[in-house]
Every structure is written in structure tokens, then in C-alpha cells.
Simulated assay, not measured.
Amino acid sequence: MEEAALFFDKGLRGSIENIVVCGGPFFGDLQWRLASLPIRLGGLGLYSAKVVSSDAFVASRAQSWVLQDDILRDSGICGMDDDYALACLRDTIPSFDFNVFTNKDTAPSKAQQTLASALFSEMVKDMEVRFDMTVRQKAVFECLRAPHAQDFLLAIPIDGLGQHMSPVEYRTILKYRLMIPLFSVDAICPVCRKACLDSFGEHAVHCKELPGFKYRHDMVRDVLFDICRRAGISVKKEAPVNFLTDPSDGRSTLRPADVLVFGWVGGKHACVDLTGVSPLVGLSSRGFTVGQAALKAASCKVTKHEKACFENQHVFIPFAFDTFGFLAPEAVELLTRVQRVMNSNVMTPRSTNVVFNRIGFAIQKGLAAQLVARLPSPAM
């Protein structure tokens, strides 16, 4: 089956390569490996037949011992000690104990899940060494594996909910996440004139003077407002909060309520303030922690707004996220509760994280708008 698996992989890789780079450069073995990892580990879930064939076969055999015993009882064939597929897996995952798979009394009930988890975990550990990843590539790979970073991939395309992207937008998002250059390295930002539009698009993402910077924020805000409204939660968008005023001139100087949720915590209104950041700004070789930028942004918002809200019988909730979809704990807590309310008030599958998928898609759609706005015309 090896030849057939390789043939299948060649076609699958060619297809995703055509979608992402349209026959252009920069789609190499690293990009293919990323694409073929499970979604929960930062990949696109496009499994390589060559990679998964051995563990799928061994798991299948381990889960069908009773049937094997019945079919092969007079053949003299038993066990998997000398099985070729098992030998391949032993070489691929040397630290894994395969003894449980060679005995029908110890074979795990979820053999496929157990083996796949061990196999892909080993592949992830091997990534940095095998591909000699740069500091930026390592940071991006960590961001892709963060909780909720891949939620957008599970969002069902629905035009009425704004869950759709143009081919150019989706291709751009895939390039950004697969570490494929988007711009010329030496192109100066046409607006701020202070920095280069680096090849991977980080300046285009965080430059406040470029068009589209506020669009991403507003996109996520609008989707959060729509989710709450559809779930039956009383909310108001961009609600004026009268107590946050400057005594000298009576004008509001603080705007902590991108979305105001009425009676959300102990009967108190909740001021939800959204902040989107790029986790890779100022990246250095001194170390990188996933979500650090979003957590810092959330902390700054709390320092700025929480006291005033508390003193006036309001609750302040920072809603911080980064360009890869990482959500600060306060945002996760809010969305988890909204999902529970939706499950109670709306007919939605309990096993589907509709709320997180919609928010994840909104983040990526807003990011796509920023990046596409800066793409040179020939690339579009």
C-alpha cells in the first residue's frame, strides 16, 4: 500500500499547494507538515496517508482481536509481534509502549485515538529540529497550537452570519498561518513611513495608521453583539457610559463598553471592552510565551477601566485576543457562559462550540481584510 499512499499524498499536497500559493513559491516541506497535522495541534487536518497508514492499521488490528481469532483460528497466524506496520511505528515512536497492542487482553478500547495522539505528539516534538525553524517560525507554531487558535476552521460557511471569505482573503490567511511571505521585504509602509512592510505582514497587522486596523476590532465586536442578541442576552453596542466623564468639560474620556451586557454579573451591567493585538510584535530570541501579548493588553485595560466601573456598580470585562485567535481568560469565560445560554435558549447542538467558532472566524476575517488591503495588485 505504500506506493498508493505516496500517490495519494502527492495529489493532496499538490491540491493544497495550488489553493494556497497558486503554483507560486514558498510552499515547502514545512508547510506540508503543518497542513497535515491535526487541527488541535495547529494543522489543517489534511492527514498524510503515508504517515497515518501504519497507526491506522495497527489500531484496527488491535480493536478487532475477537474477529481475528474467529477468522484465523485454523490458520496458525496470531499476534502482531512481527507485523511490518507495527515495526514501522516502533521506529517512529520509540518512546511509546506497544506491548499493549500485541495482546488482546491489554489492547486499549480506543486504540486509534491512543496511537494517533502518540504519533502526532512525536511529530510535533520533532518539528523544530527537523526543519531548523527560526525564532519566528517557532513562535508562530506555538500560537497555532494555543487553545481556540484553530476554531475558525470549524465555522460553517453561512453568508447570513458573515461567515464567508473571498478566495483572496482565505488564501491570505492560510499564507499568514503557514509562514509564507506576503510582501517584499524592503517595502516601506506607505502610511506611517516608519517601518518596512515585513515579508510576513506583521507591520500591516499592527500599524494603527493603515486602513483596516479598526475594522478587525469592529468585526469581532459586531459578531459578539450578534451572538449575544441571538442567544437572548440583553446587550447594547457602543453604549455610552455616563459616569466615565472628565469633570472639567463633561466629556467622556474612557470608553470601556464596546458591548454593554445588561444584568450580567449579580444584576450588574458588564462593560465588555475588546482589544486585538499581534503576538509577534517585538519578537526576539530571548523567549516567547503564547498569549503574553493578549494577557498584557487585558491587564492594561483592567488598570484603565475597572476601578471606575466598580465604583459605579458596573462590572468590567476585558476581551483580549491576538491575530492567531488566542483568547484571554476573561474572554473565554464570557464566551463559555454565552454558549451555555445559547444552548438553553436556542436549538443548537450541545457538542458544537458555535460561539467560539464564530468569534474565531471573525478574528481571521478582520485580519484578512487588513492584509489583503496591503497586498500588491498582481497578487490579487
Rank of each mutant, 00 (worst) to 15 (best):
L46F: 07
V52N: 04
Q339R: 14
L280W: 07
A239D: 10
I359Y: 01
F243Q: 09
N357K: 12
P25A: 09
G276C: 09
D151H: 08
A195S: 13
I317T: 01
S48C: 03
V140H: 06
E3P: 06
D226V: 04
G291N: 04
D9N: 04
V220Y: 01
E128L: 06
V205A: 04
K236T: 07
I19M: 08
R130F: 08
F131T: 06
A59Y: 05
A85E: 15
I156R: 14
N343F: 02
R221E: 05
H269R: 11
K296F: 15
F96N: 00
S36M: 00
F225G: 00
D222K: 05
L260E: 11
M127Q: 12
D159M: 05
S351A: 10
S109W: 11
P256N: 09
A187K: 13
E2G: 14
L41H: 09
R177P: 03
P108G: 01
P157R: 00
D132R: 09
Q370W: 04
V168Y: 02
N357T: 09
I156L: 14
V302M: 08
P211Q: 10
M80S: 14
G14P: 02
V52G: 01
S166W: 05
G232Q: 03
F7S: 12
N18H: 11
E202N: 13
S278R: 10
K307Y: 13
V281Y: 14
D70Y: 14
G201L: 02
L274M: 13
L44E: 00
V355S: 06
S117Q: 14
L37Y: 02
E169H: 00
T275M: 11
K237I: 01
T253W: 14
A4P: 02
I173Q: 03
P376L: 06
V168E: 02
V129F: 12
K304C: 12
V277N: 01
P378R: 07
P147K: 09
L280F: 08
R255I: 04
S54T: 08
G76V: 06
H148C: 03
A56F: 14
L260T: 08
A146H: 07
P38Y: 06
A362W: 01
V346I: 11
A293S: 15
N103H: 14
V302R: 11
V52T: 14
V341S: 03
A87F: 15
D222M: 03
R340N: 13
V261P: 03
F27Y: 15
N242T: 11
K110W: 12
T289P: 06
C300L: 15
K365Q: 04
P279F: 07
T92H: 12
G263R: 02
S53N: 13
P181I: 01
D82W: 15
Q364N: 02
E169R: 00
I156F: 13
C88I: 13
P240H: 07
A4N: 02
S284F: 07
A146V: 05
I233G: 00
Q150F: 10
T245S: 09
A5S: 04
D83A: 04
R61K: 15
E169Y: 05
Q364A: 01
I317A: 05
S109H: 11
C207H: 02
L41S: 10
S284T: 15
R171E: 00
E3R: 11
D74C: 11
K296I: 15
I39D: 04
